[in-house]
Design a protein around this nucleic acid. Structure first.
Lengths: 162, 162
DNA sequence: CACCTTTTTGTTATAGTATTACATAACAGT
DNA sequence: ACTGTTATGTAATACTATAACAAAAAGGTG
């Protein structure tokens, strides 16, 4: 099978465990790359990981406030930018929002299934898509360096509730 | 070959002809669907078609002003929304901008190659990508209804100028 | 045509998203 | 301790998009 689901696919799971694992991976990953996962950045990462739904920058700000900070927008955007560059989270352009990346060290690009009903997002890695894009790039001389693939629809659970 | 370039791929072409054809197609397409391509909407479509670079909503507003209108934001957004729904233009989520669709009646989804250097955008339709997405959807129970595929990089021309 | 309904456009205000610019503080190496 | 660098705080502002209501234009019907 050439596609791989790399986040819990709209299913039940132990989310506390899921989040904790992401945080531990983040520590390791940053240490390995010489990046500094400061207290603030870690807190923002935790906030993003609270759900598998995308979180907006101003949601992060709000949440930081409930945790005793008094942040203004650049605080959130800077932390989010750092996390994106560290490949710990992804930005979903179609939603202006962020979501935790469950596999920061696999060098994958973002491919997302976004449920319009329950708002959950699953990240996938489909080698056929990557290959197809590479092939098109090669055939046209286009030198691709980033792909943003965002597919919206209804997840199985929401579909069956109709 | 399973992929198709459906807009001039970063190459030279007779753009006046290109634009005019798009406008004529738009007339026909709207007539066929019972949609009203009003003077304002047509003017906005023309503005979007001025280049193969994406155009922002406020660019459209600006351009409308130079043409004697005194529009406020909703004027531009409404016309752009109409054109998107009529499948005459696409919105590029990663750029908050719009670009003309050269093949409005082919029912395709948007797949775009975006050159970060010259800002040109080419639209492609790669059946392998579509099939790969359908396959993933089928295998997970996800019911996809819209895809947004935006690939950024350097086009051949800009690459060779390096 | 006169009337009514629907759609489109105008207008004002405001909501939501993101960045610039500069100040202060924390950190790392000498 | 000193210094250069990185991170965070703060204020202001730019950019993107929509809500809500008013006016005008277009289309249908008796």
């Amino acid at each position: 099978m050439s596609d791989k689901i790399i986040s819990p696919f709209f299913g039940q799971h132990n989310h506390a465990h899921c989040t904790q694992e992401a945080l531990e991976q983040a520590e390791v990953s940053c240490a390995g790359k010489g990046l500094k996962l400061t207290a603030l950045r870690k807190e923002v990462l935790t906030i993003v990981w609270q759900t598998h739904k995308p979180v907006g920058a101003y949601d992060v700000l709000e949440e930081l406030r409930t945790r005793g900070h008094k942040p203004s927008p650049p605080t959130a955007y800077r932390a989010l930018d750092f996390l994106v560059h560290a490949k710990l989270i992804h930005r979903l352009a179609s939603l202006n929002a962020y979501i935790g990346c469950p596999a920061p060290d696999e060098g994958h690009q973002g491919q997302f299934l976004i449920c319009t009903q329950c708002k959950s997002v699953a990240e996938i890695e489909d080698l056929r898509i990557i290959k197809a894009i590479d092939a098109t790039a090669a055939s046209t001389g286009f030198n691709a360096n980033r792909q943003s693939i965002e597919i919206t629809g209804l997840c199985g659970a929401c579909e069956s509730q109709t």
